[in-house]
Every structure is written in C-alpha cells, then in structure tokens.
C-alpha cells in the first residue's frame, strides 16, 4: 500500500490531491469563469433579462405563463406551450411531463388541449401544430412554432382592438429563423412578442 515515493500510503496521497484539486477546480475555476462572465458578458451571465420601463419582467430564455390565477389562459396575450414545470413555468422546478407515448393521462391531456385551443382561437382542431399540444422538455420553453403564433393572431387582435394585419406583421417580424440558417427549428419567442405587443398598443 505504498506510493512510489518514500512509502506514503495511497490514501494519504489521494486525500492531499483531492484537497488541492477541490481548491483549483471547485473554487478557483468557477470563480474565474464567473469573473469573465460578470465583467465581459454580464447580460448573458445574469440570465438575458427582459425589462419594461426599467422593471425586469422575465428572461428572454425562459418561458412564462400568461394565465390568470386559476390557470386559465388570458386571451389578450400570445400563449406559450403547455408546461410541466411545477404549476406551469415554475422557474424553480424545471421538468418535462415524462409521460410515455401510450400514457392515458397524456392522451387525455392532448385531447383536452386540442378542444380548448380550437375553441379559444376559433380554429380547426386538426390544424393545431404539435408544439401547442405537448409539454416541452424543460417546462420553461420560451418558444412556440411560427404556425402556433400565427394561429393566435386573430384572437389577440380582437381582444386588443388592433388590426389583424398589424398583429400579423408583428408576429412575422418576431419569427426567428433556424440558428445559422440550418440548426434547430424556426421559433417565436413568446415573451418578446408579448412585450412588443404591449408597447404596440401604447
């Protein structure tokens, strides 16, 4: 049980190595990265916050709910995807639903969402895109598909007494293409769209 030098036991070498490595990798390294982040890239390092009139209203990266206290969707806002994070978009409890493809609860939930979204937006249930009917992986997905955003235009315009064309143009201008032109999927950031919508009214 001796290391190559001077008969020091392996455990003693291991203990000393772990103490030094914890100081370097567990304290020094994260502090250096934090320093770089806070000095050079503070907006990103602190969560890409969105502000309205100086108040933080959320993060551009995290979805949030646009529902009333009972969980009913507010018709004057573009609605995000269903969320399995806590009671919905809980920033302290990120999670997917983890329902399997044959789970009866999931099948019932999709049926219910389909009927609700069709009625809410006055659209054909068969036209609703998959992202609107399914919970995301994080429960904090900030995005919806352009199709789902466009589907909500008439409802939002009617609720806010805005011209449908104006809201349509607003949505079009918020469609983000695939990253670098080919990675991932086209998206609409719900919070950013709703912030633009709110200032459009003003």
């Amino acid at each position: 049980m001796s290391s190559p030098r001077s008969g020091i036991p392996h455990y003693w070498v291991a203990l000393r190595a772990m103490i030094v490595l914890t100081a370097v990798l567990g304290v020094g390294y994260p502090l250096v990265i934090t320093g770089i982040g806070q000095l050079a890239l503070p907006a990103q390092a602190n969560g890409s916050k969105e502000t309205v009139d100086g108040d933080t209203v959320g993060s551009a990266l995290l979805g949030q709910s646009f529902s009333d206290a009972d969980g009913n969707p507010l018709p004057e806002w573009f609605q995000p995807r269903p969320s399995a994070a806590g009671d919905g978009y809980d920033g302290g409890a990120s999670s997917g639903s983890n329902y399997g493809p044959e789970n009866a609860d999931l099948i019932a939930a999709i049926e219910e969402r389909k009927a609700q979204i069709a009625e809410f937006n006055g659209v054909n249930p068969d036209d609703i895109p998959a992202d609107a009917l399914t919970a995301s992986s994080s429960g904090l997905d900030p995005h919806i598909s352009p199709e789902y955003a466009l589907m909500q235009v008439e409802r939002v315009a009617a609720e806010r007494d805005l011209a449908v064309e104006d809201v349509q143009i607003l949505v079009q201008s918020h469609i983000q293409a695939r990253d670098l032109g080919y990675l991932g999927e086209p998206t609409v950031n719900v919070l950013q769209l709703n912030i633009a919508l709110e200032s459009f009214k003003a």
Binding site: R81, G96, S97, N98, Y99, G100, P101, E102, N103, L106, I107, I110, E111, K114, I128, P129, A130, D131, L133, T134, A135, S136, S137, S138, D141, H143, I144, S145, D179, G184, E185, T187
Partner: peptide, 18 residues
Amino acid sequence: GTAPQLAGGAMEGKEQRF
C-alpha cells in the same frame, strides 16, 4: 404511438428550438 399521432408529432418532452 397514440399520443404522438394525436398531437401530430413526437414533440412531448422536446423543446421547440431543437
């Protein structure tokens, strides 16, 4: 599968950006 077919795609547990 039943749920993906009903939803029109296997998007349960997937992020829109991905």
